[in-house]
Design a protein around this nucleic acid. Structure first.
Lengths: 217, 217
DNA sequence: ATATTTTTTTAGATTTGTCTAAATTTTTAT
DNA sequence: ATAAAAATTTAGACAAATCTAAAAAAATAT
């Protein structure tokens, strides 16, 4: 079993891994978990000793298969807890992240299996992110950030890649929510902003920055 | 906010406290939480610095008001979580203790308030133990007439069930007054009289009739 | 009332996760 | 290609929670 702290490092590396080839840098992890780079270096050595990551001095890290599984299980717990908090205890989707950060470290597979069943085996959390299976594996579907999407096509919002309150509040105001239909009407080359229609409402303009954080399929 | 470890010490002291007068010994705590006595001594100093317990070297400890509140809140969380696990996730009442030991340390009053509501404001956990209120207070204090009290325990006088002048005069003479500490040293089966110590004075003997009219907690 | 036993505390070490400052390696820019 | 900048690691230190062994205090038993 891993410590609370080790789990947080694994999760951070997991989230910072764009793919299985690019390594994650020491500084990126340090910034993500708000810790001195020297501290991260120490922990990376420990995680490498435990074969959870592949680490070469000065070269950054990659999760090994067992590290990926471990991280996937933590993410699964995080997302199941978020789902519980929103669906059963009526928290807002923008107020559950901190709490789930604590709850994800509770050690019990049995608990999460029962929770999974209690929630009706959800596939997505309240932010639209996939919930890994009980072995920590991510189900794969083809998704992309909205700013890459083609004009004149319709998509469905399946997730956001940012959890900041200000961003989520903005989406609420724009009535953009997980599962909604987004039709890209036009793309403005000048500033990267997009003219879109949410659920067939009147068209609105969203900035490139917002579009980058909307994950659609 | 208290650390995970501090919370466990507070909870242990809470459970080992038979009443508000007898101190809890270092060894008792050590046995309860499975830790070396020396370690307990260190932590007691720390808790005393934080005014959570009253501690005198070699004399054992008592929870202060704020320590009692803190402990009560942890117990509340523990029992609400047990209720959730049994009532909603269908765990057996005998398999939830370890899990609740983890969950009770999650920091969020809001979460427990919502959980309380979700569970229908239960008054008792699956083992039948009282659930403290949101301020950490145990619902009711159990009082009894002194003649029912156990030997070798200390109580506090909270009332009398007779107002006759002769009775009250006698109490004055014996220096028994509301709020005083009464330690039962011995019970004589023959006539029901009790050997007691009032506020740590030398022991005196009181008749069963007097004992019946002293309400203690 | 004193000696023995038990309980508790002190002293000194250890582990984990953290830090800062200095040294080293890699990357970037001229 | 080399100097400057940025990233990373090493070295040394610290706080929290723990331990064992030894010393001190309290309780007990003769």
């Amino acid at each position: 079993m891993h410590t609370f702290t080790e789990e947080n490092y694994l999760k951070s590396i997991f989230h910072l891994s764009k793919n299985e080839l690019d390594t994650v840098s020491t500084n990126a992890i340090a910034a993500d978990i708000n810790t001195a780079a020297a501290t991260v270096t120490d922990m990376l050595k420990k995680l490498a000793d435990k074969k959870l990551i592949k680490y070469q001095k000065y070269k950054g890290v990659l999760l090994t298969k067992s590290g990926l599984t471990a991280a996937g299980k933590i993410v699964r717990k995080h997302r199941l807890w978020e789902t519980f908090l929103v669906n059963k205890l009526n928290f807002g989707w923008d107020e559950v992240h901190e709490l789930a950060e604590q709850l994800e470290h509770i050690k019990s597979d049995e608990l999460m299996d029962r929770m999974d069943k209690f929630l009706g085996f959800p596939k997505f959390d309240p932010h639209g992110d996939c919930i890994p299976d009980k072995n920590g594996n991510m189900p794969s579907i083809i998704t992309q950030p909205l700013h890459n999407a083609a004009s004149n096509s319709s998509y469905q919002l399946v997730g956001v890649s940012q959890q900041s309150t200000s961003f989520l509040k903005m989406l609420d105001k724009l009535k953009i929510k997980i599962g909604c239909k987004i039709k890209v009407m036009d793309k403005h080359h000048f500033d990267g902003s997009l003219q879109v229609r949410i659920d067939n409402q009147t068209a609105i303009n969203i900035s490139e920055m917002v579009a980058k954080n909307l994950i659609v399929k």
